[in-house]
Design a protein around this nucleic acid. Structure first.
Lengths: 228, 228
DNA sequence: GTTACAATGTCAGCGATCCGACATTCCGAA
DNA sequence: TTCGGAATGTCGGATCGCTGACATTGTAAC
């Protein structure tokens, strides 16, 4: 998350819609079938997979490494999200025939499968099952984004934080994120998140540590998340 | 929009993502091909096409009339959108195998084509071109929703209003919406919208009338919409 | 262990927006 | 033409979250 201009953190909540790792339309088996629709590419750290505004002729399936998604000119970058293996990026622009809406840059060494539009479409026409799976994935994503908006529109930061903790807690009931990161994900300020966590702590619903929040009372948190 | 609890207006901006009439994945020709996947149904005013929380076994293509989309229990309805002919509803839930996220109720007399999940999937498997078109439509919708979020997150009401006017102005440069409706669409309060319109009026970018806003300087409005 | 950096905790001030309340204006139906 | 509901214009108070500033605490690298 470094380098994110503080005054534009908000954009990054989109990490959760653009870049959620569970946006996984394609299985390895699918990729096998589609192998003729593109090829493996390797990217060095800092290089671009695609740039905002360019004609979208390709989409990428990230296989190794992480990719940052940006918007805006390089001197005024707005980090939109970071995605890892399994994520498909650039497909929206490629399919709808519009320019890329964001830039994608390799964070470390990245291996990705590049889909070439002109080769992909015929292959998809031959594999309706895969197309259907892709459709389902995109609709799921759409639903998630819509739902997210409902939260962001009229929920207080407290409710948003509670909701995020419920969703993000692992099997040990822990969320290993810094408060600054949580703030970025929600599009709120670090201070507001801190204040919200304090409140939850005071009520005994969570404990906080360094880069860590432990969920003590999940059901109570859900209740808080539903308020407002 | 009547009956919308004032304190939940915000939900309704989703009219623009849930319900935009340009979410039209299927052409009449497509429907012809898919005719075996379901059948025509007619609904009387006030009856439901589907209800929130029910198992989603069908999606609907509206052919005549208008349909309201709700969320929440009937005593505390939150109008989410209203769609007309051409719109497809319920497809997200149907494809992802989850319960409907909202209820759909006929406003007037409605004719719709009901897709039965179990009959639709095989037909789609046989018509990859249609599946692909559906995919593209859903991705376009996803992009629109994401873009919308960017606007809503950190733009002032003034900028949002300006943006809406630019998008919504017809060929006579008029927007025939009440200020309350505009507020609902943007998830803002009527008062804030009024204030914003006054400001635009003072600057000479628009004129206002009864249930009407006339755009005088489109380019200037676009500039305002881009601010913040 | 020291040190540098990252993360957390806390405060005051400020701006945008929401809310409730009210007066005014417009439109359409009786 | 009159009348009632809908839409618009305008206030002041209250709230939420942001910004900027700073002290404190934790972590990891040397």
């Amino acid at each position: 998350m470094k380098g994110t201009p503080a005054d534009q953190q908000h954009l990054a909540w989109l990490a959760r819609s653009f870049g959620r790792p569970d946006y996984l339309p394609l299985s390895p088996a699918d990729l096998e079938v589609l192998s003729r629709a593109g090829e493996i590419v390797k990217k060095y750290p800092g290089t671009h997979l695609f740039k905002e505004g360019a004609a979208a002729t390709s989409a990428f399936l990230v296989r190794e490494g992480e990719v940052d998604l940006y918007r805006g000119p390089s001197d005024r970058r707005e980090v939109v999200g970071r995605v890892g293996p399994g994520a498909v990026i650039g497909d929206i622009a490629m399919f709808s025939g519009q320019p890329y809406i964001s830039s994608a840059r390799a964070v470390g060494h990245v291996t990705a499968f590049l889909f070439d539009r002109d080769r992909l479409l015929p292959e998809l026409a031959r594999s309706p099952a895969i197309t259907l799976r892709w459709l389902v994935a995109s609709l799921t994503q759409l639903e998630r984004t819509q739902r997210r908006v409902l939260n962001l529109m009229h929920k207080t930061v407290l409710a948003q934080v509670a909701g995020l903790l419920v969703n993000e807690a692992d099997d040990r009931n822990e969320v290993a994120l810094s408060q600054a990161t949580i703030a970025t994900l929600l599009g709120a300020s670090r201070q507001s998140v801190n204040e919200a966590l304090n409140q939850l702590k005071r009520r005994g619903h969570v404990e906080t540590g360094y880069r860590l929040v432990r969920v003590l009372d999940r059901s109570e948190l859900s209740r808080v998340a539903a308020e407002d």
